[in-house]
């Protein structure tokens, strides 16, 4: 399984897809989130955080200003937003590699800022179809991500069939 595309009808569904993914995360992972301003990256991130077990009372806020927010959960979650970076060298300064290839889950918004590097990981891109609806494309690079994506697509196909029953 290298890629998978699904449609989300609204914010709630996007968040739920994130929850499904978060629940499946059992080992360190790198997840890269692409999409324009307002595409729903932070909504999906919130779902992933909840699925990983971040306490409901802890708000999952935008890391745009802080660059990285850290949450304690089943696996530690490092939520990055590279929007404000202008040079890949700056990643060193914020200790990016230590988190991205560490013991937790690194969730990265605006991975375009990583420039030429296309690291192994689960790449997710959100595209705006209409005000509410989004197309969500998953692409797996590397073996671990492929396994993860297979599990996720099975889960989602299953919940789809439950819904239509």
């Amino acid at each position: 399984m290298n890629s998978y595309i699904t449609l989300s009808e609204d914010e709630e569904e996007t968040e739920n897809i994130g929850v499904e993914l978060g629940r499946l995360l059992k080992q360190p992972a790198l997840i890269l989130l692409q999409g324009n301003l307002g595409a729903g990256k932070t909504v999906l991130a919130r779902g992933i955080a909840r699925g990983l077990g971040v306490d409901e009372r802890v708000p999952i806020t935008s890391p745009t200003f802080t660059l990285m927010n850290h949450y304690s959960a089943r696996l530690d979650l490092y939520h990055f937003d590279l929007y404000r970076l202008s040079d890949p060298d700056e990643l060193l300064e914020i200790g990016f590699d230590d988190y991205a290839y560490g013991q937790g889950v690194a969730l990265v918004e605006w991975p375009e800022k990583l420039e030429s590097q296309q690291p192994d990981g689960l790449w997710i891109s959100l595209r705006r179809i209409s005000e509410q609806r989004r197309e969500i494309e998953f692409r797996a690079r590397g073996l671990d991500s492929q396994t993860l994506l297979s599990c996720l697509s099975e889960r989602m196909a299953w919940s789809e069939s439950e819904k239509s029953r």
Binding site: P59, T61, S62, T64
Partner: peptide, 18 residues
Amino acid sequence: GRTVDDAAGEAFDKVAKM
């Protein structure tokens, strides 16, 4: 109380960019 997503100043910056 606190913001559950974006800070107010951040919203100003992002809307200005749009």
